[in-house]
Amino acid sequence: MVVLEGVSKSYPTAQGKVEALHEVTLSMEKGEFVVLCGPSGSGKTTLLMTVAAMLHPTTGSVTVGQRNLYQMSSRARAKFRAERIGFIFQMFHLVPYLNVVENVVLGAQAAGRSGGSVQARQLLERLGLDGRAHHRPSQLSAGEKQRTAIARALFNRPKIILADEPTGNLDGDNATSVLGHLSDFHRNGGTVVLATHGERAEQYADRVVYMSEGEVRS
């Protein structure tokens, strides 16, 4: 279970303080598929980063499975991310000099696992990438890149997947495919928190949370 209590996040800028999140209180059940909707700049990504133990809130607390993330050391938070969280980004963020399999197993070392290329290939087969295992990201289509990112996110068997505009750079078919894979993960008991400003993902969601100007509206 993910619980945010009174979470605010502000950044100092040349123009003054900008508050990206304001007193957000939100809880997500284990195994829930939550879609965060809202326009650009509404605080969706900041909220995802906060849940991912990567962005220390200015005030408030974030608890995942009874563990208060920001009372943990940074080393413990890194370990927590490696073992519990999977990420998917709009821009894919694949490592350009690694091939598909290597990108998928990249997180394994951080999670204390070695090898894993056999499991990675099985995962790639499930995602329709078995013929692309030794291709570099530059040789893949946008849809293939995002499916590689999904494979990387799933590889360490995370409890939660955080997806930030995962279909933002994809055409309709690829977007449907990506959402389908996230839905599969959810059906198998995983928690999904997906940030988007579109509406396509809402049909897969257990709950849609609307955000605006750093606040949860519903």
Binding site: S74, R75, R81, E83, F87, G107, A110
Partner: peptide, 16 residues
């Protein structure tokens, strides 16, 4: 930068 970011997101610590 982004490669470092993704590694940190995947759980790579500062020392790594």
């Amino acid at each position: 930068q982004q490669e470092i970011g993704i590694m940190r997101a995947l759980g790579y610590g500062s020392s790594r």
